[in-house]
Design a binder for these strands. Structure first.
Lengths: 263, 263
DNA sequence: ACGAAACTCAGTATACCGTTCGGAGTTAAC
DNA sequence: GTTAACTCCGAACGGTATACTGAGTTTCGT
């Protein structure tokens, strides 16, 4: 019933796999692979060729194995993706162990989250479908909630606060563009100052510059006076300011709530 | 050179299409379709069958046309997606025309954004690849920037504020799961109170409930005490949706900045 | 007025993808 | 020793995007 390969719904299969309820017999030849090696290979493929290129065929090829063999270990692609997502949570530092008060911890959590997302953009692509929580993800979430120990926040508020920060970080990561490591939207004014200095974010890639020029050639920015002003000031539409700006606004807002709750 | 069908890079093709620099000859038979009708059909497909089901074949079938015919209008799938994304921006209300002060406008903007994303989840799926700005998107962005007219915010800060709110809304929309309309993380304690009451978000769908049960069967929640506590506190002291919670924290933070800028 | 260039459009081909099926070989259980 | 369970994999099915070819249609240049 909890056998991941025979369970009825794909959801149950994914859960059984994630939580290690793998009840298979002992007959037959020894297995040449392990689940961990498959997940590792899948992550490597996604890492170096992009999330779209992550196919069972490529994973199998990287493991020198036939495609069909993978189905002995994993029921299908969706389940493999769930395993990949939970696997990245292994490397995350547990937030409640960070030094400082809640704000320092939450800041570090957000930066860690941001770094992780910039390093492994494929997480954002996979994250949409079938978000099935695994043990590592839940452990991380549990730790994140403990950040607010001692503040007067209610349990629901703690959960919402974590969710909000996570939503912001992931949303920004997605706006920044996951795939070709883009940084900015075109300015067209030629003033594309780079004021993004957080680690892992390089600005002004080849693609970006090219697009900037093409856009500037086609668009009459006089039709967008406010936008023109913002661009002239060195900003860029969908990614101009550093990640830290939004994060600090968000933390300021949370801090107000904390102060209100514990006088 | 700006012909979308012969331009060298896919980026230039997309831009030329979006900005209407379609310089095609006048010979040959009359075209049976228009670009707008194709985009409209594509959106309809994505709307009712999910973003993954949006294929050129289905769009062509819906228009009673061969697949190859579409390629005389659109260079490829990526360009069609860019057109779809810009098309949804047509319906958006222009933020600067909203009533009230900047905070009221920004609140309305976020709610409008949220509503749009809950209604058209496919936007989040497509939004990743090749974010090429179209005229409608830039018009909306220009309007959004004008929200902060009169505040002392710098141009870059205005841009960042919009970006931050947008990132939060989209990120949350993605965390919530675009496809099977899920609501919360499973509780497993049986206390899965539904505290999501904004229009368009029904909580506790069939899938969610099923997953909750399966998860509760497999997971020992004693290993996650903080999480258990948060889940047990299903009754929410905060009167509002999780979306509004995060939004108000964010707006509080922005308000602090505004106050600091204009004394 | 008329040929030729330009254009639309469908069918076909290629190259991927996830998944299933059936068979061959291997091992543990009985 | 027989049998049942298990691993592995080639082949195939139905799906996708896209390229290419070729036939038919319309309008321009003369």
């Amino acid at each position: 019933m909890t056998d991941p390969l025979t369970a009825s719904t794909p959801l149950e299969r994914a859960l059984a796999l994630l939580w290690g309820r793998d009840t298979r017999g002992s007959r037959g030849p020894a297995r040449g692979l392990t689940l961990d090696r498959i997940v590792e290979a899948a992550i490597e493929v996604a890492e170096r060729e992009g999330p779209a290129a992550m196919s069972l065929r490529r994973v199998a090829a990287r493991l020198d194995v036939g495609v069909a063999s993978l189905y002995t270990y994993v029921p299908g692609r969706a389940e493999l993706e769930a395993l990949m997502l939970d696997a990245v949570a292994i490397g995350r530092t547990l937030p409640h162990e960070l030094p400082g008060d809640w704000r320092a911890k939450l800041t570090a959590l957000a930066h860690d989250d941001w770094r992780e997302i910039r390093r492994h953009p494929w997480v954002l692509e996979l994250g949409a479908a079938e978000q099935v929580p695994g043990p590592n993800m839940l452990r991380w979430l549990d730790s994140a909630l403990r950040i607010f120990d001692g503040t007067g926040l209610s349990e629901t508020e703690k959960l919402s606060a974590i969710e909000t920060v996570d939503a912001y970080v992931r949303g920004l990561g997605r706006l920044r563009g996951p795939e070709p490591r883009r940084a900015d939207i075109a300015s067209g004014t030629g003033s594309e100052a780079d004021h993004d200095h957080d680690p892992g974010a390089e600005a002004g890639s080849e693609d970006t510059r090219e697009r900037d020029q093409a856009l500037g050639r086609l668009v009459d920015f006089d039709r967008y006076p406010a936008l023109r002003r913002a661009l002239a000031a060195g900003g860029t539409p969908y990614s101009g300011t550093p990640f830290e700006f939004g994060l600090e606004r968000l933390l300021d807002g949370i801090e107000q709530l904390v102060l209100r709750r514990s006088p």
